[in-house]
Design a protein around this nucleic acid. Structure first.
Lengths: 209, 209
DNA sequence: TGACAATGAATGAACGTTCATTCAGTGTCC
DNA sequence: GGACACTGAATGAACGTTCATTCATTGTCA
């Protein structure tokens, strides 16, 4: 397996993190060994310790990287021309960038880790709060919000949206791995649009049927 | 810690599974050792092997137990007098029976395990499908469904409901452990009712404000 | 006494981590 | 240019520890 290793154009730390992501997704944080990671990266075990103090530091660095990625996604969502497009960016980000499913498995593992490591929990929580505030703001400003048929506050809507996002992500890891990135994305978009109709469609929109 | 061990009125296998649940939630499937479990159960390591072939068999048995519990919850939800009450049962089941947070952490771990163990994935998937069918049916039959202001099919609603449920569960593991079972339950109910209003409230209900 | 429940020290494999060693590359001086 | 000294990235065998699993032994009760 993996005859061709990780992209060598990256600097060492990134190369190691890239390999770690693959291994963690494949075996989990605690079952993936440092030897697995070194093999995936095509380097020796010892070299990892030149760049990371220990295994926990690798996990922490990955969590940090994830934090930055989330911020990027939020920024892209913020710049989308419409609220629907913002939502679609938020919902499909994890299934098309890089490899499919890898990210989902990593995030589920991250939450599992958070449930027993308060440091990880705080990091995830802080990301979540920033993202929530961002989305709440986005919703509050959007013209689409005014016409909706319900009485939910923007913050409540944001909470629901993120809950659905996490739920879809969790669902994602059950899918057989042979599903393509496109099929995943299609499924995600379907659910997103259902939620969208629910949250933002004006009350008596002309139904198709 | 845990001077008083597991209820001794249970039969050995149940007693072991009870202890395993506590350890798995506290440390995760693969970090919890057989010694941890035996200590929590107040028995010796070797005795576990009289009742379970190996550690994987313990995990599999726990997954099976979870499957039965889900079926029970669905049955209770089915017998509730109204759809709203069914939903509330589905949404709060995992935060009040037995110990709080323990169950959430276990389920997140279960999904993480499912992402790399196809056997576990199939089991979880089968539970999910049964539950989805049950809820879809429940929704389709409910009189509340007719009056809703949107055009989502019962199956789509069920999918959204389960996604939100999983999302809340994931969110749950981030909460500091000192939150009481009641506070958790209150939070869950709040979100459930928001989703409820969204999905099933007739279009022009008299708003409070 | 015999059958079964229960123990926990022993085993060996696997793991995270360390470190003595190698060596391609760079700088320095004649 | 050529000889030599130096650097530090990279290696992988070795170490101490942890863990799942085994089994010879002991306890219990009919």
């Amino acid at each position: 397996m993996s005859q061709n290793h990780i992209d060598t154009s990256l600097d060492r730390p990134s190369q190691i993190l890239e390999a770690a992501m693959v291994c963690f997704a494949k075996r989990g944080f605690h079952q993936a060994s440092m030897h697995d990671i070194s093999a995936e990266a095509g380097i020796s075990v010892g070299l990892i310790y030149r760049y990371f103090e220990n295994k926990e530091a690798v996990i922490a660095a990955m969590a940090d990287r994830h934090k930055k990625e989330i911020h990027d996604v939020l920024e892209r969502a913020r710049q989308a021309p419409s609220l629907l497009e913002s939502l679609e960016i938020l919902f499909t980000a994890h299934c098309c960038e890089n490899s499919p499913k890898v990210q989902s498995a990593f995030v589920v593992d991250l939450y599992a880790e958070a449930s027993r490591n308060p440091q990880v929990a705080n990091l995830v929580l802080s990301v979540l709060q920033t993202a929530m505030e961002g989305l709440t703001d986005l919703i509050a400003r959007a013209p689409e919000t005014q016409k909706s048929a319900h009485d939910l506050a923007p913050a409540e809507m944001a909470e629901l949206i993120f809950a659905v996002g996490r739920g879809m992500l969790m669902r994602d890891v059950l899918q057989p791995p042979e599903l393509t990135s496109e099929e995943r994305r299609a499924r995600q978009l379907e659910v997103t649009r259902g939620l969208w109709r629910l949250l933002f469609q004006p009350e008596n929109a002309p139904a198709y049927a």
